[in-house]
């Protein structure tokens, strides 16, 4: 039983960051109809910002996280303005392939700049974990969970309580009508991509110090994000949050009770199961893609 509780604790920590990844991707897909293959690179980018700020510049760990979010925002906006805006109106395959090109170029760029050797980030948290009865959790992971939860709430408020969020939801429902109502759709697109990217960067900045940082770390994160988005239904934010925690639970239980070698296969098995039993996602409005 204590083993199971331990898995639940780990699930919460992982699930929070997975939810961040999923929200970012599902926002971009839902509003822009872009299958964003640079999502994983933004995750990697966030982790490397953490490494640069903490290890190379020696700035405070807690300041590095907002910096990573801002850097992710800027890089996301830059990608949208240079690569996606000129392709507005082209089909989903073209933008997807352009995103693949950007992903390869940026990931190889990371490999070129930082090399393939994995980096780690020193954290200000004590080594000894927090022991709660039968389970223990490191302070770093607790911080990751708290920060992820905070970011999820902030995003939720941004989308549901602000004018920008209202415009985003309007664009999601009907781009043309939103445009007629005075919504600057170009601005919404850039903001959406920037917000999604900053969430991916935040997830990388949070999980980077927990594990190690290397240029290909984003690949698996991206595919997991796709799994979460399919699970929650494309474009569904609440679904993405729940999907993130379900994936984390499946991974924890899979690694704990099946085989740790297949931990990363859980996401894909979930995708397959969802497509067999409920292809629109678990929480989807009744809508098909394409």
């Amino acid at each position: 039983m204590s083993e199971f509780l331990q898995h639940l604790i780990n699930m919460l920590v992982l699930g929070g960051t997975y939810a961040l990844l999923g929200i970012g991707l599902t926002l971009i897909f839902g509003i822009m109809n872009v299958v964003n293959f640079t999502h994983g690179v933004l995750y990697t980018f966030g982790a490397y910002i953490m490494f640069i700020v903490v290890q190379q510049l020696g700035i405070n760990f807690f300041l590095a996280l907002p910096l990573a979010v801002v850097a992710g925002w800027l890089l996301g906006a830059a990608i949208e303005l240079t690569l996606l805006r000129p392709l507005r109106g082209s089909d989903i395959d073209t933008t997807m392939l352009v995103m693949i090109g950007a992903w390869i170029a940026m990931q190889s760029g990371a490999l070129w700049i930082w090399g393939g050797v994995a980096k780690s980030v020193a954290t200000p948290f004590p080594e000894a974990p927090l022991v709660l009865g039968p389970v223990s959790v490191s302070w770093l992971r607790l911080f990751v969970l708290a920060a992820a939860a905070m970011l999820i709430v902030v995003t939720y408020l941004l989308i549901n309580r602000t004018k920008l969020g209202c415009a985003m939801r309007a664009t999601f429902q009907d781009q043309d009508t939103a445009s007629l109502m005075g919504v600057n759709v170009d601005l919404i697109y850039t903001s959406t991509f920037a917000i999604g990217s900053s969430l991916a960067a935040a997830a990388g900045a949070l999980l980077g110090p927990v594990y190690v940082i290397f240029p290909q770390m984003g690949d698996l994160a991206a595919v997991k994000a796709f799994a979460i988005v399919i699970l929650g239904g494309l474009g569904n934010i609440t679904g993405a949050v729940i999907g993130g925690f379900i994936l984390a639970l499946a991974e924890e239980l899979g690694a704990g009770y099946v085989s740790s070698g297949y931990r990363d296969a859980m996401g894909f098995l979930i995708i397959i199961a969802v497509l067999i039993f409920k292809p629109t996602g678990l929480f989807a409005r009744s809508e098909r893609v394409g």
């Binding site: 595919v223 796709f226 399919i230 990363d264 296969a265 894909f268 397959i272 292809p279 893609v289």
Partner: peptide, 23 residues
């Protein structure tokens, strides 16, 4: 598995399939 739905699904299912096979 994937042609029950169109669009991005086939892409994501094929990626996932490749990853499972690799694992």
């Amino acid at each position: 598995l994937s042609f029950r739905v169109r669009g991005a699904y086939f892409v994501i299912v094929t990626i996932s399939f490749a990853e499972v096979v690799r694992l």
